[in-house]
């Protein structure tokens, strides 16, 4: 016992397991993400958010699109769906409407959710579909080798913007807010405690909830832009983040290595799509209507 309770260097019996392990498909670890990639950190926070939520994990489903963050679904020990590029949200919409007991979480990257999948995001938010969307924003297309993303800051170099980006990126919280999301927060992988809390709040709140997480892509964003390694990006997050809960989302746009406004920006109440359907049909169709999803 005393051996085990001293420093656990390695290859000893672990007296207790890493609390994240039960949430993972252990036979698929180690994962494919690069050294210093922040996606794994967000998975830790998500696992702890699930613990805090005390949900029955058999009733939690995770849906990803394509890309580095798109691989999250494959590592989580939940009902998990790795769909097509950009289409995680409409798949999740069908899954939720077909089986309303499920808590459905979309976990994907910025390119997947906001370039090819942008239209689905705006409509799911407009409808207040009961989904949580977690966007790991690394400002780039990692899986394909560092191309311009709809979030790449002006001035940053990417393989398809080799002289520096000149097109305006999305301000994701502003977009989510404008489309009607009921919960909008932004954190970075430096803010692990706050991120865990935000994920817990997002999965606990009915309706379309959105959490943006800034995470380093050392291989294809940081190094190309001479910003050092993953840990150097996280240090930048630490140094330049400004917590402003309730900030006006139009004020939280990101610039290249500029200040990062983080916090919970939106937390409001709206009827979900399914609740709206049930209430409306009961009103207009009366007893002929067969209430759905209960």
């Amino acid at each position: 016992m005393s051996q085990n309770l001293a420093i656990a260097a390695d290859e000893r019996e672990y007296p207790v397991e890493n609390p994240v392990i039960p949430y993972l498909r252990q036979e698929r670890i180690p994962h494919i993400w690069c050294p210093g990639c922040g996606i794994g950190t967000t998975v830790n926070c998500f696992a702890r958010a699930l613990t805090e939520s005390k949900r029955d994990l058999d009733q939690v489903a995770i849906v990803s699109g394509i890309g580095c963050t798109g691989r999250v679904a494959g590592y989580l020990n939940l009902d998990s769906f790795h769909t097509t590029h950009g289409r995680a949200i409409p798949f999740a919409t069908g899954l939720k409407l077909s089986n309303p007991k499920l808590k459905v979480v979309v976990y994907s990257g910025d390119g997947d959710l906001f370039a090819i999948g942008g239209n689905h995001f705006v409509h799911a938010a407009r409808r207040n579909m009961d989904l949580t969307v977690i966007c790991v924003n690394n400002f780039t297309y990692g899986m394909t080798g560092g191309q311009l993303a709809p979030t790449t800051p002006i001035g940053a170099s990417q393989t398809t913007m080799p002289y520096g980006n000149f097109e305006n990126p999305f301000n994701l919280p502003f977009l989510a807010d404008a489309c009607g999301a009921v919960y909008v927060a932004r954190w970075t992988v430096f803010h692990v405690k706050q991120l865990t809390r935000a994920m817990h709040e997002a999965i606990s709140k009915p309706g379309f909830t959105f959490v943006e997480v800034l995470a380093p892509c050392p291989t294809l964003y940081s190094r190309r832009n001479k910003l050092g390694d993953g840990v150097d990006q996280v240090k930048y997050y630490k140094e330049r983040s400004v917590v402003k809960h309730g900030a006006a989302t139009k004020e939280v746009a990101l610039g290249f290595q500029g200040d990062i406004v983080v916090g919970k920006f939106v937390d409001r109440e709206r009827e979900t799509w399914l609740d709206g359907m049930n209430a409306h049909f009961e009103k207009v169709l009366g007893p002929r209507y067969r209430r759905y999803g209960e």
């Binding site: 409409p90 798949f91 919409t93 409407l97 077909s98 089986n99």
Partner: peptide, 11 residues
Amino acid sequence: IAVLGGAWGGK
């Protein structure tokens, strides 16, 4: 793809 989600939801 929504219908594929619907199928995996059981319908």
